[in-house]
């Protein structure tokens, strides 16, 4: 480990602010992408399941005039 202590690691000789801001912003952007990815995945699966359930409901007991 190049730095003596963890505090020195954070300080990085007065450059810490820039280094950690850069990494922080980048991490935030990456995490937003990951969250969007997972959200989209769940949304697609849920919508398809809902659509197939709706179609099954219509097929099993059509409620309009054919049944009367």
């Amino acid at each position: 480990m190049y730095f003596e202590s963890f505090a020195d690691f954070l300080e990085m000789g007065r450059h810490g602010f820039y280094v950690w801001t850069a990494y922080g912003v980048s991490l935030a952007l990456i995490v937003t992408n990951l969250v969007a990815m997972v959200h989209r995945r769940r949304q697609v699966r849920a919508e398809i399941r809902r659509a197939s359930r709706r179609e099954e409901a219509v097929e099993n007991h059509p409620r309009n005039e054919q049944s009367s």
Partner: peptide, 17 residues
């Protein structure tokens, strides 16, 4: 890169970006 690499002789630690 952040913790174990040596700093740059000119730019110091800011080069870790």
């Amino acid at each position: 890169g952040l913790a174990f690499a040596p700093p740059d002789y000119q730019q110091g630690n800011s080069y870790r970006i």
